[in-house]
Design a protein around this nucleic acid. Structure first.
Length: 319
DNA sequence: AATGGTGACAACCGCTCGACT
DNA sequence: TAGTCGAGCGGTTGTCACCAT
C-alpha cells in the first residue's frame, strides 16, 4: 500500500501551462497569497491542476523577480563552490543567488556547468569560443593584439568578461579566481565567501569536509571554549573513528578518500574529483584547479588533498 | 530539404521532513 | 507516541528548438 496521491490524477491537467492558467494563478496569488495550502488552491481558482504543480509553476516561473538564463561568472563560481561544499542541495544554493530557483540552478548545472567543469563543451560554448577566437584575431590584426593578450591574463583586471571553458583554462591559461581561493597571500571573493561560510557553518559544517576527523573542534567564534558551543557545533567524527580512522588535522590520503566516500550520494557527478569514480585512475593530483587552484602545492596527490582540506577548513572557520 | 542527434528547459514523480492531531 | 497530511526537495523525464550531416 503506497501513499494516497495528493490529487486525483485523472481529473488533473498535465503538461505545459497555458498563458490563461498562468494569469489565473498569478493574479490570485498576488491578491490573496497562497493561503498556506497549495492543495486547495487550484480548486479555489478553478484550475484543473495539481497543487504541487501550481506551487512549482509559481516558484519557478511566475514569482516576481525571477531571473532566467544568463548565469554570470560570479554565479557560476558560487554554484560551483557550494556544490563542492554541500553537494546537490539546490534549494540552499538557490538561496545564495537572488532571483534564481533551485530548478533553474539544477538544470543549469546538469546541462552546462558540469560539462564546463569536465571539459566537454556544449555546442553553444564551442560557438562562443570560436567567436572569441575570431574576435581576438580581428583585434590582433587591427594592432590591438597586446591589449587582448594581457588584460585578464594577469588577473589584475578581475574576471574575464567572456565565457570560457574551465577545463581548457586549467591547462592553457590562468585560473579564474574562485571565492575562497588564496591568491598572492589574500583570499579572493571574501565578501561572497563570508555568507557562504556562514551558511555552511549553519548547516553544521556541511559538505565533504564535515565528517573529517577533527577531534574536539571548537569554532573560533565560541572563543575556543566547548562550553559556549551549541550542541550542533561539534563535528561528528564517530563514524570515521569507528571505522578505525584516527583523528588528525593533517590527513593522509586514505582518510580523505574515506571521508568523501560518505558523501558519495550528494557528490554524485563529481566522483572523479574524489578518486572514487569509475575511472579509478583519476586522483586528487588531477583535479581541476578550479576546485583546488594552487597546482604548485599539489606536487603529489597527498599534497593536493592536504592543501584543499586546509583551505576548506579555513573557509569554514575551522582554522 | 530531410533527418537524426544534442542541448536547454519545463514539468512531473516520489521521497523526506516537519507540523499537527 | 503514532499516524496523517502538506510542503519542500532532488532526481528524472518529456518536449521543443537548434544544429550537423
Amino acid at each position: 500500500m503506497g501513499r494516497a496521491p495528493c490529487c486525483d490524477k485523472a481529473s488533473v491537467k498535465k503538461g505545459p501551462w497555458s498563458p490563461e492558467e498562468d494569469t489565473k494563478l498569478k493574479s490570485y496569488i498576488e491578491q490573496n497569497g497562497t493561503g498556506g495550502n497549495w492543495i486547495a488552491l487550484p480548486q479555489k481558482i478553478g484550475l484543473k491542476r495539481c497543487g504541487k504543480s501550481c506551487r512549482l509553476r509559481w516558484l519557478n516561473y511566475l514569482r516576481p523577480n525571477i531571473k532566467h538564463g544568463g548565469f554570470s561568472e560570479e554565479e557560476d563560481r558560487i554554484i560551483l563552490s557550494l556544490y563542492i561544499s554541500i553537494g546537490s542541495r539546490w534549494s540552499i544554493i538557490a538561496a545564495q543567488l537572488p532571483g534564481r530557483t533551485d530548478n533553474d540552478i539544477k538544470n543549469y548545472w546538469n546541462t552546462r556547468l558540469k560539462k564546463k567543469l569536465f571539459g566537454k563543451q556544449s555546442r553553444k560554448d564551442q560557438r562562443q569560443q570560436q567567436q572569441q577566437q575570431f574576435t581576438r584575431q580581428a583585434m590582433a590584426s587591427d594592432g590591438m593584439k597586446q591589449e587582448a593578450a594581457t588584460g585578464d591574463a594577469n588577473g589584475s583586471s578581475g574576471m574575464p568578461a567572456v565565457t570560457y571553458n574551465w577545463h581548457q583554462q586549467a591547462i592553457a591559461g590562468p585560473v579564474p579566481p574562485v571565492p575562497g581561493m588564496i591568491m598572492e597571500g589574500h583570499r579572493i571573493g571574501d565578501e561572497v565567501d563570508e555568507s557562504i561560510r556562514k551558511l555552511l557553518y549553519k548547516l553544521g559544517g556541511a559538505g565533504p569536509f564535515a565528517t573529517l576527523p577533527v577531534p574536539q573542534y571548537v569554532p573560533p567564534m565560541y572563543g575556543g571554549s566547548p562550553s559556549l558551543m551549541p550542541p550542533s557545533c561539534t563535528v561528528d567524527t564517530s563514524s570515521l573513528n569507528e571505522g578505525g580512522v584516527q583523528g588528525s588535522s593533517a590527513l593522509p590520503a586514505l582518510e580523505l578518500d574515506q571521508s568523501f566516500h560518505f558523501n558519495q550520494v550528494k557528490l554524485d557527478g563529481l566522483d572523479c574529483f574524489f578518486g572514487m569514480g569509475t575511472d579509478q585512475s583519476m586522483r586528487w593530483s588531477e583535479v581541476n584547479p578550479l576546485v583546488c587552484p594552487n597546482n604548485t602545492v599539489a606536487s603529489s596527490s597527498q599534497g593536493m588533498q592536504q592543501y584543499c582540506l586546509v583551505d576548506e577548513q579555513a573557509n569554514l572557520g575551522m582554522k
